[in-house]
C-alpha cells in the first residue's frame, strides 16, 4: 500500500475529491488526479503510476479510449485499471472488459466497494 501510486481520472471535480478522500481513508495516501484521458496520459509521462481508477464519460478522451490507449502501450499492458462510472448497461460493461479494464464499479459507489475492488484487482 505504501508504494502504490494511484491515478484518479474523472472530469467531475466533485467525484475526484470523493474518490481521493475515500482512498486516503483506506490508507492510500499517494494519489494524483487527472480530468480526462488526455490529461491522464500527460501526467503518466512524468509520474510513475501503479494503479488507475478511471471514469468513462469524459471530454477530450473518454475512459474507454484511454484504457485502449494504455493497453496498446507495452509498459501499461498489465497496469491495474478500475473503471468507476455511471454506465450500468451490460453491453457497456462487456465493452470495458474487452478494452482491458480489470474491474468495474457503477456510481454511486460505497467506500467498501471501492476498497474491495482495489484489493481484488491488486490480488490479480
Amino acid at each position: 500500500m505504501a508504494d502504490l501510486k494511484i491515478l484518479a481520472v474523472d472530469d467531475s471535480p466533485t467525484m475526484r475529491r470523493i474518490i481521493m478522500n475515500t482512498l486516503k481513508r483506506a490508507g492510500y495516501n499517494d494519489v494524483i488526479e487527472a480530468s480526462d484521458g488526455r490529461d491522464a496520459l500527460a501526467k503518466m509521462k512524468v509520474e510513475k503510476v501503479n494503479f488507475v481508477i478511471t471514469d468513462w464519460n469524459m471530454p477530450e478522451m473518454d475512459g474507454l479510449a484511454f484504457v485502449t490507449a494504455l493497453r496498446s502501450m507495452g509498459e501499461y499492458k498489465s497496469l491495474p485499471i478500475l473503471m468507476v462510472t455511471t454506465r450500468s448497461v451490460k453491453d457497456d460493461i462487456v465493452e470495458a472488459l474487452k478494452a482491458g479494464v480489470n474491474n468495474y464499479i457503477v456510481k454511486p459507489f460505497t467506500p467498501d466497494t471501492l476498497k474491495e475492488k482495489i484489493k481484488q484487482v491488486l490480488a490479480g
Binding site: D11, W56, N57, M58, P59, D62, T85, T86, R87, S88, V89, K90, I93, V94, L97, N102, N103, Y104, I105, V106, K107, P108, T113
Partner: peptide, 24 residues
C-alpha cells in the same frame, strides 16, 4: 460539446454489482 451518460441514475442501476462481478 456535452458529455453524459443518458442512463445515469442515482437509484436505478441497470446491472447490479454482483452481476458485474459475475461478468469479470
Amino acid at each position: 460539446d456535452r458529455v453524459y451518460d443518458p442512463h445515469a441514475d442515482l437509484f436505478d442501476k441497470r446491472t447490479d454489482q454482483s452481476a458485474i462481478d459475475d461478468i469479470f
